[in-house]
Simulated assay, not measured.
Amino acid sequence: MSVTLMLSLILLALMIIIGGMKGIGAFVSLWINFAIMVVMIMLINFQFNAMAVLLVGGAFLLTVTILSAGADERTTTIALMASFIVMLALVILILPAEHLAMAQGFAEENSEELEGLSLGININFVTLGIVAALLATLGAIAEAAIAIAAGIGELLADQPKMSLASLAQSGQHLGQQIIGTAVNTVLFGFMADFLSLAIWFGKLHYSLGEIVNAKLFTSSMLSLLYAILGVIVILPITMAIFLWQQRRQLQTDMGTNHDYDGK
């Protein structure tokens, strides 16, 4: 039995014990997302339009991730809408940023491993950098969106007569706590991924200027910034969608009551 299979079985057992049916759903969604990413890589490798593959595949990844949370229909809908909006906003941001940074492709530190291999893969490395940068942000965006939407929904369920202003204030406070945790999670993930690279830079006595201008550092830092920006922006967008839906529901209820009183 391989280590990967053994750890997967341990993960499945723990998710069933702790999460029950939702744990099984989350475990299945993990492998569905993995399959989606494999299909995306294959399509890009077969010369399909990378941006189209990115948008369609990213939408599927967000949908599977949010549906696996097992939230109610309203929470799921709001989280999906907010996540799609943030994904599109990040695409608009990443496109010029990746072109200006020019941190795509292999760096000097990869030269030894690539020696003797052909780099003529007939795929634009800038496009690959954009795809990789956006995919690195989707998980954090989806988790933050579902957490904020579910939290605000619980607030409204506990106090159904809460005014929109009070709901917005309470949701803002709750969202700030969720955002703080999500940002720390993204930051710790970056530090863990950057640890070996930092030791590499230290052993080779890189100066600060060389580190800042290194492709590996720049690409990693850009991915971190994209993820943090996505997590921060998801709060006001989720709040705006939730309040908009709540206002529409209140207007509908008032119209229904008015019609009933008239009759």
Rank of each mutant, 00 (worst) to 15 (best):
L12R: 01
G23R: 01
L61G: 02
F34A: 15
L9R: 07
G23K: 03
M15Q: 08
I17W: 05
I24P: 08
A26P: 03
V56P: 03
V53W: 01
G57D: 07
A13K: 00
A52S: 08
M42H: 06
M6R: 04
L11T: 12
L62Y: 09
F34K: 01
K22V: 09
G20D: 09
A50C: 00
F60M: 14
A26N: 04
L7Q: 05
T63F: 11
L67D: 05
I32T: 14
V64W: 00
G25E: 15
M21G: 01
M15C: 10
I32Y: 04
T63S: 05
I44A: 12
L11H: 01
F27I: 07
I16T: 10
L61F: 09
F48Y: 11
I17M: 03
I24K: 05
F60W: 11
K22D: 11
I24N: 02
S8D: 06
M51A: 06
V56G: 08
L43C: 05
F46N: 10
L9A: 07
Q47D: 11
L5K: 13
V28N: 00
L7P: 04
F48P: 01
L61T: 13
L9Y: 04
G19M: 13
M40K: 02
L61H: 06
A26W: 02
F46D: 15
F46G: 03
M42D: 14
L54I: 09
L43N: 02
V28R: 00
L67K: 11
F60G: 10
L55H: 06
F34E: 07
G20T: 12
M42T: 11
F34C: 10
F46W: 06
L11Y: 09
V53G: 05
V56T: 06
V53C: 08
L61V: 05
I41R: 00
I44D: 10
N33L: 06
T65P: 06
M6V: 15
V56Q: 00
A35L: 10
G23D: 04
V39M: 12
L54K: 02
M37W: 11
I36N: 05
L14K: 02
L5Q: 09
L11G: 10
I36A: 04
G57W: 03
S29L: 12
L5Y: 04
L5T: 11
A52Q: 00
L14F: 09
M21A: 12
A59Y: 07
M6C: 06
V39I: 06
M6S: 14
M51L: 07
A50S: 11
M6T: 15
I32F: 09
K22I: 12
G19W: 08
I16L: 14
N49H: 09
I66C: 14
A50D: 01
A52V: 15
A35G: 12
M51T: 10
G57S: 08
V39D: 08
M51H: 02
S8C: 07
I66F: 11
K22G: 12
L12F: 13
K22H: 13
V53D: 04
F60R: 11
L9F: 12
L12D: 03
F60D: 03
L30M: 14
N33I: 10
F60K: 07
N49T: 05
N33D: 09
L55A: 07
V38W: 01
A50F: 08
T63I: 12
V38A: 08
N33E: 14
L61S: 07
I18S: 13
L11Q: 02
I18E: 15
V64A: 04
G20Q: 10
A26G: 14
L14D: 15
V38S: 00
I10N: 05
F34W: 04
M42I: 14
